[in-house]
Design a protein around this nucleic acid. Structure first.
Lengths: 150, 150
DNA sequence: TTGCTCCTCACGTCACGTGAGGTGGC
DNA sequence: TTGCTCCTCACGTCACGTGAGGTGGC
């Protein structure tokens, strides 16, 4: 039974960094400040081991960092919220109680909507900038036509 | 004749920072690295004087920094390109030669289009993220309906 | 065994934040 | 004259970059 046949484990830091399109330094730093798990029982000098899930998480962090310009402190809040959601999902699967299930789904929805608000606010700002550039371009093109028709 | 009646001059740094929604430290730093003009003939300890045009420029810089995540080095290139364009606009008004005018308009158009490319690339990334969030939300909502209808 | 990747300091850098101590204009 | 804002160092901070010197796994 290969490791891939059970659960995928033990990616090395270089591989993780490459897949997330970042550097090993960034991965170590994120571990240091608690943004990435940091394989708890690791003795001094031992190599770090990551999972496929860590790569997904890292990619998500980088995306929010780059696209929304969040600080690592803010990203930590976001990641903690994701972790809380993961726990809730596990609870969701364990329970049959529909009141509990409803509450968990409500929280998930709220979380997603807060993220959507951030993303859409940014998009709106970018669209404002885009429109300004487009009308600038329209004015230049109008002058080009004037020149051609004179 | 008030100063406002001629050309608006001599804004103080605190006023500039407030209008651009930033800090005086940032304004000084941008002057230091050459991103803002820095009233050439100013003797040691003398107060900085800015114009309305400086505020516009600063706001533009901050917008590109925040929305596109450019480094100050990259913003410097952008600002230099803007300055070059300002010179060209002046030349445009001085000349009657339509070949020269055509060339200037072509350059202006190219500049605007490069900026538009950056803005649209960012917007596309944000839209990718938005779509992912929207389908996540759809899935949560579907489960809520399942729960309600059971 | 030989590379290649990994490890831990630790100092450097970019883009400012934050006082400390002093001077200048309504 | 009294505040308020301005000035110049200069050290601190956040988010890493970049070696230095050494160890570990295919």
């Amino acid at each position: 039974m290969t490791p891939a046949a059970t659960e995928e484990r033990s990616l090395r830091i270089g591989e993780v960094a490459k897949r997330a399109d970042t550097t090993t330094r960034t991965v170590r730093y994120y571990e240091e400040i608690g943004l990435l798990p940091g394989s708890a029982e690791r003795t001094q000098g031992e190599h770090r081991a990551f999972t496929e899930a860590d790569v997904v998480r890292l990619k998500e962090i980088l995306r929010f960092r780059d696209l929304l310009g969040l600080s690592l402190e803010q990203l930590k809040d976001l990641v903690e919220a994701e972790d809380a959601r993961a726990l809730l999902r596990a609870e969701f699967r364990r329970t049959e109680d529909s009141a509990t299930r409803r509450r968990i789904l409500d929280e998930a929805l709220g979380h997603i909507e807060r993220q959507l608000d951030l993303v859409r606010a940014r998009k709106a700002e970018l669209e404002g900038l885009e429109e300004e550039l487009v009308s600038k371009r329209r004015r230049v093109r109008a002058r080009q036509r004037e020149l051609r028709d004179s």
